[in-house]
Computed example of a mutant assay.
Amino acid sequence: MDKEIVRGLSVSPLGVHAVLLVVPSDLTFTEAQQVALEEHMNLFDAGIWKHTMVLFTYGDKLADKSIEKHIEREHRALRWLVNKCENKYHVVNNMKKSDMSQVTELFEKIEEMVAGNNGRLYCPDMNDVHHRIEEKFRRRQLKNVLKQELEEEYRRRELELMINFKETLLALQADKESVTST
């Protein structure tokens, strides 16, 4: 997935004006999603956040509640995300797909973000990004090896305990038999 994200950003060799993080408003954005998102975003330098906006989908599921109330009442991970994006967000009502004003408003917000960034494009150093991906892959491999070794050690100790327990039970059974036969 990391390579696919990087490929998406590298389609434009000069850089991008906007990165949209799509978040369905009808699902809870939890710490698990926050951690996953941070891992992906950490492939790039911190400057990416100045060019990032949250795009909430399924705005129709909010009913009468405003997106601000939704953000306020949701898990703190969602508030973290909105804060990270400097409160840049937009809501799309999926039931009004033909309402082009939603798209127009989104583009207006993107233009505001571009103006706030003085028209500068976000262009990551792809060598650094690829290095971070390789490093992340190595850490994940090491983690898997350590996890496997830990599981093997756990199984070995469990087997050892079971053997010791069996020996203790047999010894107790032998003691009991010798006591009852005398």
Rank of each mutant, 00 (worst) to 15 (best):
D64E: 06
D64G: 11
D64R: 00
D64K: 03
D64L: 10
K65T: 15
K65G: 12
S66N: 12
S66E: 13
S66H: 13
S66C: 13
S66R: 12
S66Q: 10
E68H: 02
E68Q: 08
E68M: 06
E68A: 04
K69S: 14
K69A: 13
K69F: 13
H70G: 10
H70Y: 14
H70L: 10
H70M: 03
H70V: 06
I71E: 04
I71N: 04
E72Y: 00
R73E: 15
R73L: 14
R73Y: 10
R73D: 13
R73V: 13
R73P: 05
E74P: 08
E74K: 14
H75F: 08
R76I: 10
R76S: 11
R76F: 11
R76A: 15
R76Y: 14
A77N: 01
A77R: 04
A77D: 00
A77Y: 02
A77H: 01
A77K: 04
A77V: 06
L78V: 14
L78K: 12
L78C: 12
L78M: 14
L78T: 11
L78G: 09
R79K: 10
R79V: 09
R79T: 09
R79L: 08
W80R: 03
W80A: 10
W80T: 00
W80V: 07
W80G: 02
W80I: 04
W80C: 06
W80M: 03
L81V: 09
L81G: 09
L81F: 03
L81N: 07
V82K: 01
V82W: 05
V82F: 04
V82S: 04
N83W: 12
N83S: 15
N83P: 13
N83E: 13
N83A: 15
N83V: 14
N83R: 15
K84S: 04
K84V: 05
K84Q: 00
K84Y: 01
C85K: 07
C85D: 11
C85P: 09
E86S: 08
E86H: 14
N87T: 02
N87P: 02
N87A: 06
N87I: 06
N87L: 03
K88C: 12
K88Y: 11
K88Q: 15
Y89M: 01
Y89Q: 07
Y89V: 07
Y89F: 11
Y89P: 08
H90N: 02
H90K: 00
H90V: 00
H90Y: 02
V91T: 07
V91P: 01
V91E: 02
V91S: 07
V91G: 06
V92K: 14
V92T: 15
V92M: 12
N93Y: 08
N93M: 03
N93G: 00
N93W: 06
N93S: 06
N93R: 08
N94L: 02
N94R: 09
N94S: 09
N94Q: 00
N94P: 01
